[in-house]
Design a protein around this nucleic acid. Structure first.
Lengths: 240, 240
DNA sequence: AGCCTTCTGTCATATTTGTGTCATGTAACC
DNA sequence: GGTTACATGACACAAATATGACAGAAGGCT
């Protein structure tokens, strides 16, 4: 089994606060909870890190010298590249009113200082969980192929592809686990569900069906055979 | 044909308050303004009614014995089926602070008691307008088909189509949720109301009736079967 | 109320589509 | 060249959906 499945979050959180003391405090609490921490002391730095490292969540102090947290938030939400990054605002008790404008601007939650580590962690978890669920609903795009979970439809170059239920799940599995080899066993477990006993060769057949279905403009080349190991979905096309 | 009075709003509002006196008062004021009223005296009842009848708006008292209004609100916003129902909270003057948490939890507006009927009505109108329930009154056009909620009429290429009540609601549901798959279960929930127990296959039959009714100039192709998943209304015609 | 019409949900049956396995062909590896 | 792993097409059976018919329910009309 893979290491990320021992349910350790392994999420990366960016802390943005001008006071080192607060950053440290948050950092300790969050690391103890199993998160990776990045930090920035101003909005510029923060923006650079976000663009660069794609943290899974940003904890953003409301009040900061220079560009305020709110401005950074607005900027993040304005740009397509960063609009999906979830943000939790940290606000001082006094500025209750600001909660609303923060939420308006697109923050996912806010926490009023002072707060307990427990509260912090639980909010962080809640936001990550919610965002994770929503991400499940976002279309996945690879090459000219669009995989739309909500519509339960796959299209390539705007033409609807038709897939059987199993091939659909297989493709979904691959798309959410790209660039990695899986044995037939693993694929059976993930795609068919844990307690089926089927011939491993069955996987081959469904792989073939999937390849056939998406063989438009070379998209079948994303599904790659790894001799002796299994299959892999990769956007790095193998040389012929 | 339904009774469909003059051209009154015809919106349905659910009142949730534990005190009968208040329910009556609100009820009289709102009925005078042309709304249909449902009422519930506790959160459980309210939830059942919401799932079942899909009111256009919920007026929810903050303070109630048992599950409080806030808890109900959270629950509504948590479940996909009900997250879109607009909610106005009724709060006592004293609990000003609660406004904020109410809005946070997803309330659309709040009104502090005591309030005037005029204020109530205008807030209700405002929320309904904003939430776009008004938009629900605009005709929806797909291909040559015109779905006119006000006239409760559907026509294709200027010929009136006749649909049974269930097929009408089914079509309305599809038109307002295009390009998305729904399981038979979900369809039963949305179109029939939450607390019915019916055979899932019943959906198939109504789908067929709907298809048959709109099968003019190929409009039945908009209603698509997604094997293993349910049905979808899509303007991207399937297959070649 | 009673009659008539329309609507509804369920069933039994037909049809379509998906499934896993096998036999055989083909390519990779030593 | 022999061996192994994978690809492919065919097929029988399984599963899901479509369809037509029907009896009871609901609603309109006089």
């Amino acid at each position: 089994m893979t290491k990320e499945s021992n349910h350790m979050p392994e999420h990366t959180i960016l802390l943005v606060d001008d006071e080192a003391a607060i950053r440290d405090m948050l950092s300790i609490a969050l690391e103890a909870a199993g998160y990776n921490i990045l930090s920035a002391e101003n909005a510029q730095q923060a923006h650079a890190i976000i663009v660069d490292q794609h943290p899974d969540l940003v904890l953003l102090d409301w009040m900061m010298p220079g560009t305020t947290g709110l401005e950074l938030l607005r900027r993040l939400k304005r740009e397509e590249l960063t609009e999906k990054v979830p943000v939790i605002m940290l606000t001082a008790k006094a500025e209750e009113g600001s909660k609303i404008s923060g939420l308006d601007a697109g923050a996912d939650d806010y926490i009023a200082k002072p707060f307990s580590p427990r509260e912090l962690i639980s909010r962080v978890k809640a936001v990550l969980r919610r965002v994770g669920r929503e991400a499940l609903k976002d279309p996945i795009i690879v090459g000219e192929m669009v995989f739309d979970p909500l519509g339960h439809r796959v299209s390539i170059a705007n033409n609807s592809i038709d897939l059987g239920p199993t091939e659909y799940r297989l493709l979904q599995f691959f798309l959410t686990h790209q660039e990695r080899v899986f044995s037939r066993d693993q694929i059976l477990d993930y795609v068919w569900g844990g307690n089926v006993y089927l011939d491993e060769r069955t996987v081959d057949v469904h792989i073939r069906r999937l390849r056939k279905a998406i063989s438009v403009a070379g998209h079948e080349n994303y599904v790659q055979t790894v001799r002796g190991a299994g299959y892999r979905f990769s956007t790095q096309i193998q040389h012929a």
